[in-house]
Simulated scan of single mutants.
Amino acid sequence: MDRLPARTRRDRHGRGLRGRLVPPTVPLSRSRAEQFDDLVLDAVEDLERRWERELAGVEFAVEDVPWVDHTSPDEVVLDADVLEDGSVPLARVLPAHREGGKEHPARIVVYRRPLEIRAADRDDLADLVRDVVVDQVAVLLGRDPEEIDPTA
């Protein structure tokens, strides 16, 4: 018995999928998440120039939203290592620790969506990201935020 050829999926006008609407060299082609990553990297690079020795080995990460353990909602506690606005975490410091015989470096996690929601525009978001990163570095190093970044 002969099989029919597999049908290809096309839109109803027969054009199929189209290419990108914006060339990859234009800033508009980058996603909001990629643009946010760039803001965090800019803030971190500036601080690493001044605090190179103290920040050696510190990992910086971006997550879309804070992780919540839904299996025990009564157990959700915001520790001193969490920067929050109201009850919404904006960033978190995870100190270096040893677990299962493996060394884990200190880590600063910045949450993208809560910060984007609080910013009026891109410039406001850049300022907010910088303030949050400076605050978390200050917590990690046990210093005042004004000492970490006098311009803040």
Rank of each mutant, 00 (worst) to 15 (best):
M1D: 10
V76C: 02
P95A: 10
D69Q: 04
S31Q: 10
D149P: 02
G57W: 09
V139H: 03
V68Y: 13
G100D: 14
D124W: 02
T151E: 14
F36L: 12
G100Q: 12
L55H: 10
R92T: 09
W51I: 00
P145A: 04
E45K: 03
G142C: 12
M1E: 10
V40I: 12
L21H: 15
E63S: 11
R49F: 07
Q136L: 14
P23D: 15
L41R: 15
L83M: 03
V76T: 11
F36P: 09
A96F: 06
D38I: 04
V109I: 15
T71W: 08
P5Y: 08
G142L: 05
V88A: 03
H97L: 08
D85V: 03
G101Y: 06
P89R: 07
W51T: 03
E103T: 13
R30E: 09
D121H: 01
D46H: 07
A96L: 06
L39D: 09
E45H: 07
R50P: 00
E75K: 13
W67N: 05
P114R: 04
W51S: 00
V76W: 13
V139P: 00
L21I: 11
D85F: 09
P24V: 11
Q35T: 11
E147N: 00
R130D: 07
E52K: 14
R10A: 15
D135L: 04
A106Y: 05
R7I: 10
A56W: 01
A80G: 10
T8L: 13
A106Q: 04
L78V: 09
D149Q: 04
